[in-house]
Amino acid sequence: MRIDKFLKVSRLIKRRTLAKEVCDGGRVKINENVAKAGSNVSVGDIIEISIGARNTKVKVLGVKENVRADQATELYELL
């Protein structure tokens, strides 16, 4: 799954267009490598997101096309 879509589906970033801008701005890393919006994410990957003063690091636990809002946190684990 594309990283921009994963960020939106997991509700780490609310809108896919914002997720795409953040990725293309070099503020997202997958396993220590800078990720573009089209980079693939899979189970076990470590994602680092830097937006402003907020830094978030998560481990991917699942990849699904659609989930309900209350199930979104099951897709990742905060590190």
Rank of each mutant, 00 (worst) to 15 (best):
L78P: 02
N66E: 10
N55A: 07
R11Q: 03
D4Y: 07
Q71I: 01
K59C: 02
R54I: 06
R11F: 06
E65T: 10
I49L: 12
G26S: 11
N33G: 06
R16T: 09
D24N: 15
V34M: 14
R11I: 00
K20A: 13
A53L: 03
Y76V: 03
I49Q: 03
F6A: 11
R15Y: 03
V22E: 04
E65N: 00
V63K: 04
E32D: 13
E74D: 14
L12T: 00
L61E: 15
D45Q: 03
A37T: 03
A53F: 04
V9G: 06
V60M: 15
V9A: 01
L7F: 04
L78D: 08
A72S: 14
A37I: 11
I47E: 07
R2H: 14
K14C: 00
A19Q: 04
G38N: 13
D4S: 12
S50M: 02
A72I: 01
R2P: 02
V67L: 08
K20N: 11
T73Y: 09
S50E: 09
V22M: 11
K20S: 10
K8S: 04
V58K: 15
K36G: 04
S42L: 02
A37K: 14
R27Q: 12
A35Q: 05
T17N: 09
S10E: 05
R15Q: 07
K5M: 08
E21K: 15
G62M: 07
A69T: 12
R16K: 01
K8P: 00
E32L: 08
L12D: 03
R11A: 02
V9R: 02
I49K: 02
K36V: 08
I46V: 12
A72H: 02
G52N: 08
R27H: 08
G44L: 04
K5R: 15
C23P: 04
V60N: 13
T17S: 05
Q71M: 11
R54G: 01
A69K: 14
A69W: 03
N66V: 13
F6D: 05
K5T: 13
F6R: 06
L7Q: 01
G62L: 12
M1A: 15
R11M: 02
L79I: 14
T56I: 15
N33T: 10
M1C: 14
G26R: 11
C23N: 03
R27T: 00
K20I: 12
V9I: 14
G44K: 05
A35E: 10
V34T: 15
S42N: 11
E74G: 01
E65Q: 12
F6Q: 13
D45W: 01
D45Y: 01
V41E: 13
A37F: 13
M1P: 09
V41D: 12
G38A: 09
R68H: 10
V60W: 11
C23H: 10
I51S: 07
N31A: 05
V28R: 14
I13K: 10
I46N: 06
K59G: 02
G26V: 12
